[in-house]
């Protein structure tokens, strides 16, 4: 465990807790893409199946359990408890356009042709694009609430820190995982445009809105 991974994980945790807290506190999930949240839920569940097969550390097990629990809670709030506030008219990205190709790719490009490994690979690929419905929704409505922007910034920071973590691990541990690195870089690139808007607008106290 290096500092970049730890801060990245904490940033990841902060992001998902922030989103859950925002929905709970405002009793509304307006502006939040339920489809992105379903895909993140799928990401955690398919990746963390190893909770049942091998133990790594208390930290690892606890974080995995929290991620799965928070993801399920968020999906529950969006699709059940606060369903009336869910902005489905603007959440129109088709999930199958991501899940089907990503599933196919996981079958073709993986480290090992076993069920657990293919599901792990699927989750890595899916995570890299899971945020697209959320970004698509923001581009459709032309704006994002400030807390949603903070959520995206914390999530993007986690990805960027993981890249630094991989550089560190390559130099100091001689370890690298090409699947995780390529998918992680793709994912981080998707946040770049958002990062720019966040720094130029939200950090200066303005709401994130796209130019007309």
């Amino acid at each position: 465990m290096n500092i970049f991974r730890l801060v990245g994980d904490l940033s990841h945790l902060l992001a998902i807790l922030l989103l859950l807290w925002k929905i709970w506190k405002t009793r509304s999930c307006a502006g939040v893409s339920g489809k992105s949240q379903i895909m993140f839920g799928l990401v955690y569940i398919t990746r963390y199946l190893d909770l049942f097969t091998n133990f790594i550390s208390i930290y690892n097990t606890t974080m995995k359990a929290i991620f799965i629990a928070v993801a399920i809670a968020t999906i529950y709030l969006i699709y059940f408890k606060f369903k009336a506030t869910y902005d489905s008219n603007h959440d129109t990205f088709r999930m199958e356009f991501l899940i089907v190709p990503v599933g196919g790719l996981a079958f073709l490009v993986n480290h090992d042709f076993t069920a657990l490994e293919i599901l792990w690979t699927f989750s890595i690929y899916l995570e890299s694009v899971a945020i697209l419905p959320q970004l698509f929704m923001i581009s459709k409505t032309g704006e994002a609430e400030t807390i949603t922007s903070h959520y995206l910034f914390a999530l993007g920071s986690y990805r960027a820190l993981y890249i630094v973590n991989w550089v560190y691990r390559y130099y100091f541990e001689g370890f690298f995982d090409l699947i995780a690195i390529v998918a992680g870089c793709v994912q981080t690139i998707l946040y770049c445009d958002f990062f720019y808007l966040y720094v130029t607008k939200v950090m200066h106290g303005k709401k994130l809105s796209l130019p007309a």
Binding site: M1, R5, D9, H12, D50, N54, I56, S57, N60, M63, K64, F67, W120, Y162, N165, R169, E173, F175, D177, I179, A180
Partner: peptide
């Protein structure tokens, strides 16, 4: 099974 370092990442 052998220890796979990428699986200790979240």
């Amino acid at each position: 099974s052998k220890f796979d370092p990428s699986k200790d990442e979240l």
